[in-house]
Amino acid sequence: MAQEKNNPIQDFFKNLPQSQLARAIFRTGIPRNRRQRMMIMLNSVFLHLHPVRLPKHAVKVKYTWCMGGLSFFVFLVLTVTGILLMFYYRPTVEYAYGDIIDLGEQVPLGIMREIHRWSAHLMVITVWLHMFRVFMTGSYKPPREFNWSVGVILLVLTMLMSFTGYLLPWDQLAIWAITVGSNMAGATPVLGTSGPGSALLALGDVNFIHSASDARFAMLGGRFVGEGALLRFYVLHCIGLPFVMMIFMIVHFWRVRKDGGISGPT
């Protein structure tokens, strides 16, 4: 009887998991028994990325190193911090650099740029390590060949994301790194002005490939790293590449499940 005289605040928290509101949001309630633990995995759209049951080796950190999951998590961190940065950053030659300075000095909690930049580096590293783990456990072998190839595309996209982001601060580091990188595009065989065979695409005397119409120009939207390049890289960095990447990630995660879950000795 004494227990029923609890104060109402305690009661409130005690009954919260059973309340109408909680049951409306979480179908399962607090998972206490085996059935509920299985149902919670099936009922949540996020948790159901996972299977309900796994062989024990697949859960051990020393097997997967958590690297695939961490790559995804860091990608989410980058998305959130990236959106915050987009509130302040304007991709024009006039404003970009100043906006980056303001991000550190004027904006409250001004470490978003730091988190974004270091996460970007970290993601390249975690994706490499994830690939390394997948190789060392032989997880690319049938039936997972296709998912390995999807992974390779994700790896390339990750590096392209990082590369396009590198230009945005519009400082010396940025434009010269991109200049070095994009000069290579000018050397593309046939399609770059300074690439072998660039004279092949010609009609009589008219050369189709010249410095204002070649692979490098398409990439930079200009003959050098300038206004056009900044806008192109910005759009690719914030919309284009993340969009493509999301699609490949969906396929990647789907295939991990469809290929039989995390690899293991059979």
């Binding site: 633990r37 299985m38 996972h50 049951r53 796994l54 062989p55 024990k56 950190v61 999951g69 293991g264």
Partner: peptide, 20 residues
């Protein structure tokens, strides 16, 4: 070792979810 471990099946909630 992995094959030895794999004989045992565990529930993802809570074991894996907690690790993550």
């Amino acid at each position: 070792n992995e094959a030895e471990d794999a004989k045992e099946k565990i529930l993802v909630w809570p074991d894996l979810v907690y690790i993550e």
